[in-house]
Amino acid sequence: MATPSDQPGWRPDPEQPGMVRWWNGLDWSDTRRRADDDVAKVREAAEDAARSSTISPQQVAKTTGAPKNALKAASDAVVSPALALSNPFAAAALAVGIIAVLFGALGVLPAIGLVISVLGLVRSRRLARDGRKDTGFGRSIAGLVLSLIGLVRWLPFIAALLPQDLRG
């Protein structure tokens, strides 16, 4: 099992203080850059460190000698553990959508899938607005379509359960 330190990312260069170096997951590459070239690069290094290392943004800023505004930018870039899964509603919508098509449970699972899909779409919009790349939009749409198919597939069974006078 891979540990966070095995994940690729920009890390403080062990050989040259004030520089960051690309760790490819197995070995150091020859690619280096000054960590304090600009705030965007420091933020990118801090995001990579937060996702794939045990190094904190404060340590990145301290090792690179970054200015205080870069330290703030690095701290702002840290993603909380709750947001690390970017969009759990999207994955749940897809899973429930697949199960809804197969089993349906008399329309209950497709209805739940529709609700979860809408939550996934709302979350993906918020993630896109925040500049995240993996928003889960596609998985949410797939879950929505599958849930709709599941609902349509199970409608005859639901209609058969209704009293005769309501069926028309």
Rank of each mutant, 00 (worst) to 15 (best):
residue 64 T to D: 03
residue 81 P to G: 07
residue 138 G to Q: 10
residue 106 L to E: 08
residue 56 S to Q: 11
residue 51 R to W: 08
residue 126 R to C: 00
residue 91 A to I: 10
residue 88 P to T: 12
residue 53 S to I: 02
residue 75 S to Y: 00
residue 123 R to N: 15
residue 51 R to G: 04
residue 86 S to N: 15
residue 89 F to L: 09
residue 32 R to S: 11
residue 57 P to E: 07
residue 116 I to M: 03
residue 59 Q to G: 01
residue 54 T to R: 12
residue 72 K to H: 06
residue 54 T to S: 14
residue 27 D to P: 00
residue 111 A to H: 01
residue 130 D to A: 15
residue 68 K to M: 07
residue 117 S to Q: 07
residue 35 A to I: 11
residue 20 V to F: 06
residue 27 D to I: 03
residue 89 F to N: 14
residue 23 W to N: 02
residue 38 D to G: 10
residue 35 A to N: 01
residue 80 S to E: 15
residue 90 A to M: 13
residue 26 L to R: 08
residue 80 S to T: 15
residue 54 T to E: 14
residue 72 K to A: 08
residue 31 T to K: 13
residue 106 L to K: 13
residue 64 T to V: 08
residue 21 R to Q: 14
residue 37 D to H: 07
residue 88 P to V: 11
residue 55 I to M: 11
residue 136 G to Y: 06
residue 130 D to K: 12
residue 71 L to C: 05
residue 142 A to Q: 02
residue 138 G to R: 13
residue 131 G to L: 05
residue 92 A to S: 11
residue 48 D to F: 04
residue 137 F to G: 09
residue 106 L to H: 13
residue 93 A to M: 07
residue 50 A to K: 01
residue 114 L to N: 05
residue 35 A to D: 01
residue 23 W to E: 05
residue 38 D to Y: 09
residue 35 A to V: 07
residue 73 A to P: 03
residue 33 R to I: 09
residue 128 A to L: 13
